[in-house]
Design a binder for these strands. Structure first.
Lengths: 218, 218
DNA sequence: ACTTTCAGTGAACATTCGTACACTGAAACA
DNA sequence: TGTTTCAGTGTACGAATGTTCACTGAAAGT
């Protein structure tokens, strides 16, 4: 097919190019299979078959299944960090911040559905290594969010504990919303709109709470 | 051992008594194993071995593994409903309601850790049947919570949409907190106290938000 | 006292699993 | 040019999987 009909000479393929290509095939196959099953019940044989390689070839890229899981986590948290960066970029007008954040989340969630689904699944999943890694990364994410929030007008005098309360509320909200929006129910546009609208209102109610919040102790 | 040494005559065991006993053994074994793995990777052979029966005997109680999962869900949501009932009972003074709810949740969570862990795991787990069932039950739970909230002072004039926003916030918060509190990190008393304290503050911030909330449209 | 019911047994099955091992062939290197 | 490296192949293995079937023996029903 592509050998002669294609106009581009796609033949010359470096050795590490090819390796990287099958590595991606493995990662993509895993992400697709993880839509139907948990990481714990992921079969190496079925995975490699879906990736188009023979079972034993897997070990040329990962020495264990857990290593594959951690690689998937790296990818997934890359996109999660991209989310916060995209929200931060542009105008940081406090008024439009909620709408902007919800919109960005909605778009990124649709674009990298597999990554967020993976995080949401394995966050409470059976594998202890993945679970702890996700917990750690999410706490870093929350911390980063907290430092951002500290610069918001009206929150300058909040203590670390207050910021933690608010940031964890937002993270919990994001995780919960992501869990809903990656599900099959969110494919129906009207249902998806309801979910996003409710998410926006939830965020607003939390912001109202933050506005009326009197900082703890001290 | 128990045949002669025991003072109680534990011999006379009815047929359905015995059946119920092994059924419980299966359910308990499953709940224990589900602390380490997802339902999707639950092995029927390992399960029946843990329950003290031969693999094929499983089918005398459940015709499929999914049926076992649904039975576990029934149990788990029984305890969840017990939670809301216990909060409702006693004095419904709005002032102490948050502290009371958090305390009840903390105790019930410790007492029925396996049930809540099961719900939290399979909520985003691989099995579509369990996932949908949990989603449905949680939406019922949220609805029930919403009708309770509708009777609270200051919320009498809220619309269904407003109540949905607040109730879903509380449910998300409860699910998130449960996920943290069933983990091994919550075994350390100091860590657990931090988690519970933060949960209480999160609930308070939401309540402040609800107090300052102006109902949608109309 | 007999027959029936049925929870639990035990052997056997076809699959699927993860992994070890020796291999091939082309790219990278000398 | 000849040599080395190494991603991917193919076979083979023991272990574990879910499910079948005929069975046993004691409780339940007659």
């Amino acid at each position: 097919m592509t050998s002669k009909a294609a106009a581009v000479p796609d033949k010359p393929e470096s050795r590490q190019e090819r390796k990287e290509r099958t590595r991606r095939a493995i990662l993509d196959a895993a992400l697709e299979m993880l839509a139907d099953e948990g990481f714990g019940s992921l079969s190496l044989r079925a995975l490699t078959k879906a990736a188009g390689i023979v079972p034993t070839a897997f070990y040329r890229h990962f020495s264990t299944l857990d290593e594959l899981g951690l690689a998937l986590l790296d990818e997934s948290f890359m996109t999660l960090r991209g989310l916060i960066r995209e929200v931060r970029g542009g105008d940081p007008a406090p008024e439009t911040l909620i709408d902007r954040s919800v919109d960005v989340l909605s778009v990124q969630l649709e674009e990298h559905k597999a990554h967020f689904r993976f995080i949401g699944r394995e966050r409470q999943g059976g594998n202890a290594v993945l679970r702890d890694a996700i917990r750690h990364e999410l706490s870093l994410f929350e911390r980063e969010l907290a430092t951002d929030l500290a610069r918001m007008p009206g929150l300058e005098r909040w203590g670390a504990a207050d910021l933690h309360v608010l940031a964890s509320l937002f993270v919990d909200l994001m995780v919960a919303a992501a869990g809903e929006l990656v599900g099959p129910a969110a494919d129906h546009p009207a249902t998806r709109k309801e979910l996003v609208d409710n998410l926006r209102n939830q965020a607003r109610m939390i912001v109202v709470g933050a506005a009326g919040w009197e900082p703890l102790d001290r």
